[in-house]
Computed example of a mutant assay.
Amino acid sequence: MSALLEVRGARVRYGDREVLHGVDVDVHAGELLAVLGANGSGKSTLLRAAAGLTPHLGRVLVDGRPRGRLDVALVFQRIHLVTRCTVLDNVCAGALGRLPLRSSLVPSLFPRALREEAMGCLDRVGLADRAHDRAGSLSGGQQQRVAVARALCQRARVLLADEPVSALDPAAAEQVLGLLAELAHTEHLAVLAVL
């Protein structure tokens, strides 16, 4: 059985320094794969190459095809929520890549079906009761769970998480990692996490 996410021969250079030297990674549907290593060892560079955020040599395939723009969802160490907007609007933003432009300009124009889907994503991460709160009013662990819900709303089959728990206390970190593992298994996602 082929992997859902395949990285083949990833090579990344910064000037004269080669950071990645032909790295291969396979992540299957239902699997959470953690990349561990010392600072500066190229973990985040690998993730950014897999996401298409860093120029690289090699191939990245999702389900046997070259990675498309909407195939991969990202969860970053810095959560990147719009803190003045509601939790629900932040989750709806995960679907911006598949919305017509007129529906994506103002959160109040998000279609009802999208809002219902986003509520389902919030329910999956245990935060449906906070949907109408400002994102900035949540704790760090709750904000990271909102970021995961936003990634789910993107409908990508591959989830890349770059240091998703480094800024969280141990209890919140354990909760977020448990959530990523659960989503990999129950949603049949391929999850690649840098820790």
Rank of each mutant, 00 (worst) to 15 (best):
T54H: 14
T54D: 12
V23P: 01
R67W: 06
Q154F: 02
R124E: 15
L70T: 14
V106M: 13
S41N: 05
C85Y: 09
A95E: 00
R69E: 15
S108H: 11
L122A: 00
G136F: 01
N39E: 12
P164G: 07
L159N: 01
T45I: 09
R130I: 02
L152M: 06
G52L: 11
G30T: 13
R145T: 05
V25S: 11
R134W: 03
L109E: 07
A93K: 03
L114H: 08
R145V: 08
S41R: 11
A95C: 03
Q143K: 15
A34I: 07
E117W: 13
L127N: 01
A161F: 02
L127A: 03
A156C: 08
L46R: 02
L122K: 00
L138S: 02
A118E: 03
K43V: 05
G141I: 10
G126D: 05
L122W: 01
T83E: 15
G126V: 01
A147L: 09
E117A: 13
D89S: 10
V60G: 07
G58W: 02
P66Q: 09
L70I: 05
L36A: 13
V148P: 00
V62E: 06
S139D: 01
G58E: 12
P164H: 05
S104C: 09
A73D: 07
A73C: 12
L122P: 02
R59K: 11
R84M: 01
T54F: 00
G30C: 12
V60L: 05
G120N: 05
P66H: 12
C92R: 12
S166M: 07
V146Y: 05
L152Y: 04
F110H: 13
L114R: 06
E117I: 04
C121Y: 00
R115H: 08
A151I: 02
L74E: 04
R155N: 07
V82F: 07
A51H: 10
H28F: 15
C153Y: 02
L105K: 08
L57R: 14
R150G: 01
A167I: 01
G30S: 11
D71K: 13
V106I: 11
V165N: 00
L160Q: 01
R157L: 05
V106S: 12
D63E: 14
